[in-house]
Amino acid sequence: MVKNKIKELRTACHLSQEQLAEKAQVSVRTIQRLEAGDDASISTLNLVAGALGVEVGDLFPHTDTSQEQEEKIQSADEQLQYQLQARHEEFRTFKHLYNAIFIIVMMAWGALFPLVHSDIYSSLMGVFWIGAWIIMVPLKKWLTIKRVDPKLDRKFPLTASRVDKNRQG
């Protein structure tokens, strides 16, 4: 039996066991076992800590940690930091690639203006060009939420429940 503060942290966050399980992407039974003092894997501890917005070491009372528990906490933190760093790099790559493609497309579109000889088509191209600039940010957010985040959550599962998963910190 391992003493932990998961129930205390969960209630402080006003979460039910079901809500914490959903947020941490684990089963309710896993939360029940953890709160009862059962041991858990490093990845499970990372997921629960991320869902609660704390570090893995904060899940345990500092006075009751054994050497084995300290090593487990350190290993969990190292794995999380590795996955967060890798996720941040991939997310940064996505942002740079999106921006580069968008700018190239917009420059190419702008270069077509002098080739259009009709005022109507020229005006229409200008409206679309301005409209594309307006929808750039919402489109990137939509792509992030619907496409990039789910892919990165599968690739880096320890980061899935972290609020800081796409921010370099």
Rank of each mutant, 00 (worst) to 15 (best):
R147E: 06
P114F: 02
D77H: 15
S43N: 04
E8G: 01
I104H: 10
T159V: 05
K3V: 15
E8Q: 15
G131D: 03
T30N: 03
Y121E: 06
K151Y: 13
A36Y: 02
E89I: 08
L9D: 08
H96Q: 10
A76S: 12
P138L: 05
S27H: 07
S75H: 07
I31P: 02
E89Y: 12
T144I: 11
K5F: 01
T30C: 04
A21K: 00
I120F: 14
L34G: 09
S43F: 02
P150Y: 09
D164C: 08
A86I: 02
I101S: 10
L80C: 04
E78M: 14
G126C: 00
H62W: 00
L158F: 03
P138F: 05
I42V: 15
V48I: 12
L124W: 12
L158E: 10
L124H: 11
F94A: 11
T93M: 08
L84V: 03
T44L: 02
K23S: 01
W142Q: 05
N99F: 07
A49W: 00
Q32C: 03
M106N: 12
K141H: 08
I104G: 09
M125Q: 10
F156G: 00
K140C: 10
M1N: 07
L112C: 14
S161G: 08
P157I: 00
V116M: 09
I145V: 15
N166A: 05
E18G: 02
F102S: 06
A49I: 01
Q81C: 09
A108L: 13
I31T: 00
H62L: 11
K5T: 02
A100V: 09
V56T: 10
I103A: 14
A108P: 04
Q168V: 12
T44A: 08
Q69M: 14
L15D: 01
L45S: 11
G37S: 06
D38K: 09
T30S: 05
E89N: 12
E89M: 12
H88E: 13
E71W: 05
T93R: 15
K151F: 02
M107A: 13
R154N: 10
P114H: 04
G50C: 04
V28W: 06
V48G: 05
K146W: 06
S27V: 07
D64F: 00
A76T: 02
L47A: 14
L112P: 02
R92M: 04
R154H: 04
A36F: 06
D38C: 07
H88S: 12
L139G: 10
T65F: 02
L52W: 15
V127T: 10
A111N: 03
R162D: 01
P157A: 01
A160T: 02
A100W: 09
H117P: 11
L158H: 08
A76D: 03
E90D: 15
G169L: 14
I120Y: 14
V148S: 08
G57F: 11
D153W: 04
T144E: 15
V163R: 14
T65W: 01
V116W: 06
T11D: 03
K95P: 00
K5I: 02
R167S: 12
I6F: 03
Y121K: 11
T159I: 02
M1Q: 07
S118G: 11
N166D: 06
L34M: 15
L59V: 14
